[in-house]
Design a binder for these strands. Structure first.
Lengths: 190, 190
DNA sequence: GCCAACATGTAATGAGTTACATGATTAG
DNA sequence: CTAATCATGTAACTCATTACATGTTGGC
């Protein structure tokens, strides 16, 4: 038997539908707005998955017609879907398998001019500085919403993960640039 | 034209072959030993890719027979391969697209008992504590080798990325557990 | 009139994992 | 003798991305 790796998209969808019924478009938007710092989906995966979940009776499709608006396909989680989600939620998470092109280039940096690697590090640093700004604005937004205390806390905790991460990466970039400069300076005067 | 996302495995292989010719088995081992904290490959992807690179003349396959040893297929990077690698190396890196099942479960933690989420956080913390131990032993190993100063530095920098990351994740886990406990305590006495 | 946002999907392709398949050599 | 390590691969499959395809609604 071929054991497929678990389809996480399924649970991302079911989890979001736990709050309220949504269309594929709504789900995509919610992920981009709220979860983008640790999750992403694209339509080419999302729409076929919704159709599959509907077929499996984990969600129920309903066509919603509203005035001055295109017909939307709104998906509601079923009892079966809720059970499936509740079964997944307490299961231990898989540890993230990390693959970083930056670190590959850094590791192979021995084959390039040091300034090339320093350039990557500055690029990465800037990327995380921008992220930190985004995190701050999302944090303010979380506080403004009127979700429950509990909902806000878990959202905040997930967000803070990104903040801790970006901060650590900025420190690492600075530290690494310093180390490379020290090496090249030593080379120059030897 | 369908633009395929860049095949990074290709460059991981070419980069490793820059140091010396190796077999598929050697490459897998080197990745597991040295790069596992930011890169991974499996045979099912690696062997077909080596065959492809050979067909594209980026590497040259040679059968090496040694006494008391099975015949090995050793791959050597060609001039064309070196050029291809040199073209990739200075190109700006793609920012890592991050997908974390842990954060998905944390975000949806609002639907579970707080102790479930705290369990995940403790599990993640332990994972990173173990990683930190591994990093320390690799760091000692790096210092013991007689690679060039430059080679060691870039290896160390890549390794330190993991250290910075794991440290930040441990802090985040502790912080998050504290926040969740504070919420549940407040609930209990209200 | 035009652009952004709303709205839904399919086709083609490539990336990556797991299971299957086989066998030699070496250290305990 | 037996387990770990050496050694190479294929088949089946799922996951995920990108490009293609189409059309509406609302604000400036």
């Amino acid at each position: 038997m071929l054991m497929a790796p678990e389809n996480k998209t399924k649970y991302a969808i079911l989890g979001l539908l736990m709050t309220k019924p949504m269309s594929g478009y709504d789900i995509k938007k919610k992920i981009d707005d709220k979860l983008s710092f640790f999750w992403h989906e694209n339509y080419g995966h999302l729409y076929p998955m919704l159709a599959k979940l509907d077929k499996e009776k984990l969600v129920k499709k309903e066509i919603v017609s509203e005035e001055r608006r295109l017909d939307r396909k709104v998906y509601k989680i079923t009892d079966k879907g809720k059970k499936e989600f509740a079964k997944w939620l307490p299961r231990p998470h898989e540890f993230a398998k990390f693959r970083s092109e930056l670190l590959l280039k850094v590791f192979f940096g021995v084959n390039a001019e040091p300034e090339i690697t320093i350039g990557f590090l500055n690029r990465e640093k800037e990327f995380h500085e921008n992220l930190l700004e985004t995190y701050d604005s999302i944090e303010k937004e979380i506080n403004k919403t009127n979700y429950s205390k509990k909902y806000k806390l878990f959202w905040l905790i997930a967000l803070l993960n990104g903040k801790f991460y970006s901060n650590s990466q900025i420190l690492w970039c600075n530290d690494s640039i310093k180390k490379i400069r020290k090496l090249t300076d030593a080379d120059r005067f030897s």
